[in-house]
Amino acid sequence: TDVTFHVNGRNLHLKGADEELLRRIEELIRRGADIEELEKAVKEWEK
């Protein structure tokens, strides 16, 4: 799945995201995470 999140005026584009990653990103956004936290979560998922 390709999806782009718009967070605090910045874009986080995910290519090939699975349901697990999407749920994790949505949860972080609900908690008020900043873009750096979201990018870190994506990097951890990519490993």
Rank of each mutant, 00 (worst) to 15 (best):
T1H: 14
T1L: 13
T1N: 10
T1C: 06
T1E: 08
T1V: 15
D2R: 03
D2V: 08
D2P: 02
V3S: 03
V3K: 11
V3A: 07
V3C: 09
V3F: 12
V3M: 08
V3W: 05
V3I: 12
V3Y: 10
V3G: 02
V3P: 03
T4K: 04
T4A: 04
T4R: 03
T4W: 08
T4I: 14
T4E: 06
F5I: 15
F5H: 03
F5A: 01
F5Q: 01
F5D: 02
F5V: 11
H6E: 14
H6S: 09
H6I: 14
H6Q: 12
H6Y: 09
H6N: 11
V7L: 05
V7H: 05
V7F: 05
N8R: 04
N8H: 05
N8E: 04
N8P: 01
N8Y: 03
G9T: 02
G9A: 01
G9K: 01
G9L: 03
R10F: 15
R10K: 15
R10Q: 15
R10N: 15
R10T: 15
R10C: 15
N11L: 15
N11V: 15
N11Y: 15
N11P: 15
N11M: 14
L12G: 00
L12E: 00
L12A: 00
L12K: 00
L12T: 00
L12S: 00
H13W: 03
H13N: 07
H13T: 15
L14C: 01
L14I: 15
L14Y: 02
L14K: 00
L14E: 00
L14R: 00
L14V: 14
L14G: 00
L14N: 00
L14W: 01
L14P: 00
K15C: 03
K15P: 04
K15M: 08
K15A: 06
G16I: 07
G16P: 01
G16T: 06
G16D: 11
G16H: 08
A17C: 07
A17E: 02
A17Y: 06
A17S: 04
A17F: 06
A17T: 04
A17R: 02
D18V: 05
D18L: 02
D18N: 12
D18M: 03
D18H: 10
E19C: 05
E19P: 14
E19D: 13
E19A: 14
E19W: 11
E19V: 14
E19K: 14
E20N: 14
E20V: 11
E20M: 13
L21N: 01
L21R: 01
L21E: 01
L21P: 00
L21V: 09
L21F: 08
L21A: 03
L21G: 01
L22P: 00
L22D: 00
L22R: 05
L22G: 01
L22I: 15
L22H: 03
L22N: 01
R23V: 09
R23D: 06
R23H: 10
R23L: 11
R23M: 08
R24V: 09
R24G: 07
R24N: 09
R24C: 09
R24L: 14
R24E: 10
R24W: 15
I25S: 00
I25H: 00
I25W: 01
I25M: 08
I25A: 02
I25D: 00
I25F: 04
I25K: 00
I25C: 05
E26F: 09
E26N: 10
E26P: 02
E26Q: 09
E26D: 07
E26I: 14
E26H: 11
E26S: 10
E26T: 12
E27P: 01
E27T: 11
E27Y: 13
E27H: 10
E27K: 10
E27G: 12
E27N: 11
E27L: 13
E27C: 13
L28H: 04
L28E: 04
L28M: 14
L28C: 03
L28Y: 07
L28W: 06
L28I: 03
L28R: 04
I29K: 01
I29C: 04
I29V: 06
I29H: 04
I29N: 01
R30L: 12
R30T: 10
R30C: 08
R30K: 10
R30A: 13
R30S: 12
R30N: 09
R30G: 12
R31K: 12
R31C: 13
R31G: 15
R31A: 14
R31W: 13
R31T: 09
R31V: 09
R31L: 13
G32E: 05
G32T: 02
G32V: 03
G32W: 03
G32S: 05
A33D: 04
A33L: 08
A33H: 10
A33R: 06
A33P: 01
A33M: 10
A33K: 10
A33F: 12
A33Q: 07
D34L: 08
D34H: 08
D34V: 08
D34F: 08
D34Y: 07
I35F: 15
I35P: 01
I35Q: 02
I35C: 01
I35K: 01
I35A: 02
E36F: 07
E36M: 06
E36L: 07
E36K: 06
E36N: 10
E36I: 07
E36A: 08
E36V: 07
E37I: 11
E37C: 08
E37R: 11
E37W: 06
E37T: 12
E37H: 09
E37V: 11
L38R: 00
L38K: 00
L38S: 00
L38W: 01
L38D: 00
E39H: 07
E39T: 08
E39D: 05
E39P: 00
E39K: 07
E39R: 06
E39M: 10
K40V: 13
K40W: 11
K40D: 14
K40L: 14
K40R: 13
K40I: 14
K40N: 14
K40F: 14
K40Q: 13
A41L: 10
A41Q: 09
A41H: 10
A41G: 04
A41K: 07
A41I: 14
A41D: 04
V42L: 07
V42G: 01
V42N: 02
V42M: 06
V42H: 02
V42C: 03
V42Q: 03
K43Y: 13
K43S: 14
K43T: 10
K43N: 12
K43G: 11
E44L: 13
E44F: 08
E44G: 08
E44W: 08
E44N: 11
E44T: 08
E44V: 09
W45G: 04
W45S: 07
W45T: 04
W45N: 06
W45A: 06
E46W: 09
E46N: 13
E46R: 10
E46M: 09
E46L: 10
E46A: 12
E46V: 11
K47A: 10
K47M: 13
K47V: 12
